[in-house]
Design a protein around this nucleic acid. Structure first.
Lengths: 189, 189
DNA sequence: TGCATTTCTTAACTTAAGTCAACGAATTGG
DNA sequence: CCAATTCGTTGACTTAAGTTAAGAAATGCA
């Protein structure tokens, strides 16, 4: 677990001795216990996270009801919409398991990009890949019925169904908990 | 219309004489008539587009039915999920109006990034902004009912309702054309 | 361990979207 | 300009999700 981010980066670019030392110096690994709120609605966001182990969700508070919109797990980056901008966040970010992350800040990023421009290139390329996947996910969501969305989730991220409570999964699928309960019952048959 | 892309870029980075000349040399402005299919399902994608004027949609063919998943208009980038990867596209891309675009290719990008690393930095930063917006759009979509989605579209992209046929708007909202027709009737009251 | 809280399920009922079909309106191409 | 096709609306009916409420199951905490 010493430097999982380096391990991850090394899949994509060669890690020089210099880069390794630099990243070891600045990298900030943190453990957050389950239940930690990493970002609150209305607050300024100055941190992003790379999940080494654990699970994080983002959720809105709509008329007192929590609407989970995203789940993040191992090897995923959590970048709040308001990250680095000086605007209040519209949603919360919470660890739903004990979670180990690398923590990034705009200042850290700027410094690393300046010293190692290749890392910025990599981020540009990785960003495009993640964007493409996300687009596809949104398109599938639009085209599918709630039941189809649940079946797709079972297939694509089966771990989530174990890791997150069902009412959070429900809003992630864009439906009510009662509906998800019925869908599950229907499927068993 | 000589170089709209330079105009757009100049909002974000200083345009040197050298960069301007370079981009003028390599930039490839094309006009596509309404109805042009820019990418077909199953085909390899080697072009991305920056819309100067016009409207482009992406759509899937699900059991013979077209499902429009995205509309792109002025100052938006159209980057197919399969762009630059050597995998077949899962969807079509079509101009639904006469459309003027800047056309990009992976080779062109590589060359520009090599000569003007600042452009790659800008793209990294812009990509993050676009990603954040897209995430917010997806979250809103999940939380809203079909009627609320339509009202949001009316508010946020009112031009689209004039520019695209209603059945395409319907699948963009994740519903059937008959339902959209009824929603519109409900709203007028 | 046991009590309190949260989560999940079930049921009855309401509401709105999906489906199928028909028809008139608008658009397109020759 | 006309014929053909596509598009949008409407109606009747089906299906599934939302709502409300209640109780069972699971979980967390003292």
């Amino acid at each position: 677990m010493e430097n999982e981010i380096l391990k991850y980066l090394s899949k994509y670019i060669p890690i020089t001795q210099e880069l390794e030392e630099e990243l070891n110096k600045i990298e900030f690994i943190k453990l957050f216990p389950k239940g930690t709120i990493l970002l609150e609605e209305g607050k300024i966001s100055n941190e992003c996270y790379f999940i080494i182990k654990g699970c994080i969700r983002s959720f809105y508070n709509k008329d007192g009801e929590e609407k989970t919109t995203e789940f993040y797990t191992e090897e995923q980056a959590v970048i709040p919409s308001a990250y680095g901008k000086k605007i209040p966040s519209e949603y919360y970010i919470e660890c739903i398991e004990d979670t180990i992350t690398g923590v990034g800040t705009p200042e850290l990023e700027t410094e690393v990009y300046r010293k190692f421009p290749q890392v910025e290139s990599l981020n540009r390329a990785l960003g495009e890949v993640i964007m493409a996947k996300y687009q596809d996910t949104f398109a599938e969501f639009k085209m599918a019925s709630p039941e189809e969305r649940y079946l797709a989730l079972l297939k694509n991220r089966p771990d989530l169904i174990q890791r997150a409570p069902q009412h959070q999964i429900a809003s992630y699928l864009g439906i009510k908990p009662e509906s998800l309960s019925r869908i599950r019952k229907r499927i068993v048959k």
